Amino acid sequence: MAYVVTENCIKCKYTDCVDVCPVDCFREGPNFLAIDPEECIDCTLCVAECPAEAIFAEDDVPENQRRFIAINAEMAKVWPAITERHEPLPDADDWNGKPDKADLLER
C-alpha cells in the first residue's frame, strides 16, 4: 500500500515531506507533488510533515479524493524526482485548505 498526495497539495506544493522520505519517492510537477507508488515503502514519515495534510495511506484516501491514487501513479511516471526541500509556491498559504482545486492541477 502506497501513500497518496491529494488535492490540497495543488497550488501549495510544500516540500517538507520530501526531506523525510528515505527512498526519494516524491515527484515534482508544476504545482503539485506526487508519490511514486512503485517506490513508496509505506514508512508514514511524510504524513506528519505535510503542512497541507494532503497525504494519506491509499486505503484511507477520502472517497472524494480517490482519483488522486491514479493521478499520483500517472504523474510519477513522467515527473522528475524531487529529493530536497525548497520553498512552497509563493501564494501557498492562500491556497491551503481551499476546496475544489483539481481542475487547477498542471500536468
Rank of each mutant, 00 (worst) to 15 (best):
P80V: 15
A57D: 11
V78M: 01
L104E: 13
A52H: 01
A76L: 04
E106L: 10
D60G: 04
A102S: 15
A2I: 06
N31Q: 11
I55C: 06
D42T: 14
A70E: 13
A52D: 06
V61Q: 09
I35V: 14
Y14T: 05
A92Q: 07
K77D: 06
L104M: 14
C9S: 04
P30C: 14
I55S: 06
C25F: 09
Y3F: 09
T44N: 07
E84D: 13
A2K: 04
I55D: 04
D100K: 09
D42I: 09
W95G: 10
R27K: 15
K77V: 01
M75G: 01
T44R: 06
G29Q: 09
K98N: 09
D59T: 13
K98L: 14
K101F: 06
D91T: 11
L45S: 11
K77E: 13
I41M: 07
A52I: 12
N8I: 08
C25H: 08
L105H: 08
D93W: 04
E58F: 00
R27I: 09
V20Q: 02
P22V: 12
R107H: 06
D91H: 07
N96Y: 02
D24H: 07
D42G: 13
T15D: 01
Y3L: 11
V47R: 06
D59K: 13
E84F: 05
D93E: 15
E106H: 03
K101E: 11
D16E: 11
N64H: 04
N31R: 05
V61T: 09
C43W: 07
L45Q: 05
L45C: 04
